[in-house]
Design a protein around this nucleic acid. Structure first.
Ligand code: SF4
Ligand code: SF4
Lengths: 144, 144
DNA sequence: GACATAAAAGACATATTTATCCTTTTTAAA
DNA sequence: TTTAAAAAGGATAAATATGTCTTTTATGTC
């Protein structure tokens, strides 16, 4: 469904967002251990996320990665996915065909449309929505 | 969604099934050009499909790949997918987590369940169903 | 049996994704 | 100003996916 990078990215963002309460910053080490991912690779993931300004960062002591509280509402999961996997989720064809032509659709057309619509709905969740759906600070699921 | 191998596999099977009317056999060349895929790689794909006895084959002159008419009803798209991508479609986790625990689900749990259910429905289509849904021999969509 | 044809099998090649390591730059605190 | 913490960047390595090529094996025709 999503690339591994994308999954780490989603988990990273959710983890960092979980700390956004007091504008707290988290270090690379904290993120990697918080989502149980390889640290060096996670560094690259976080770089991409900061370059696309989904997360912010400051260098030096007491620095780290963070997301501002007021941004939780506006950042959508789809924003994160598009950084890593582009729009393949929406345009990708179930049979690997290059064109999806609604006029002469393949036999799976309708079913694929449904699936894509579901995915779209899911990715339209804001970070705030994700966090609210869980009991306070219970982000343990990220480390499974 | 599916690996490239899997997509070639699906298209190959649908193409071969389309010829199953008269128990006709099709050569590798015919398949590759019929679904517009790299020939040498398609050979590998077809090997895997015969090894898992989804398609049959005979060597030598007048040989080729074929699917028996009576098997069109029983072969499901899910059979093909599982050859190439295993059960990752069903078990794979949207966040790349190793366990999906329904007791302490992640925030995306419900939405993912829905998506997976849709995929399951789609893959439950038999080859016969796929072929019937199209006007006779109009399998041009395979070459897009 | 000799020959031609077509798939099977395995060795080889390339591309992409995933992951690690090491150095440089920035920054805050002492 | 020195020092240490932390991200940024570049180079590289390992793993996987994708793709090609050559040889072997089976089978129908003559
Ligand atoms: S409907 Fe058919 S042609 Fe369109 S994207 Fe899906 S598989 Fe491809
Ligand atoms: S519901 Fe959550 S834990 Fe379960 S598979 Fe989906 S993302 Fe993973």
């Amino acid at each position: 469904m999503f690339s591994k990078s994308c999954k780490y990215g989603l988990r990273s963002v959710i983890f960092i967002a979980g700390q956004a309460g007091e504008n707290k910053k988290v270090s690379l080490t904290a993120v990697a251990s918080g989502i149980d991912s390889p640290q060096a690779f996670t560094a690259k993931i976080l770089q991409q996320l900061t370059k696309s300004s989904i997360v912010n960062s400051t260098k030096g002591p007491y620095g780290g990665f963070f997301i501002r509280k007021e941004d939780l509402e506006t950042i959508l999961l789809s924003d994160v996915v598009s950084v890593f996997d582009g729009d393949s989720v929406y345009t990708g064809c179930g049979l690997g065909l290059s064109k999806c032509d609604a006029k002469s659709p393949c036999p799976l057309h309708d079913k694929f449309i449904t699936i894509r619509a579901n995915i779209k709905v899911m990715l339209n969740s804001s970070l705030a929505a994700i966090l609210n759906s869980e009991a306070e600070e219970n982000l343990m699921f990220l480390k499974r």
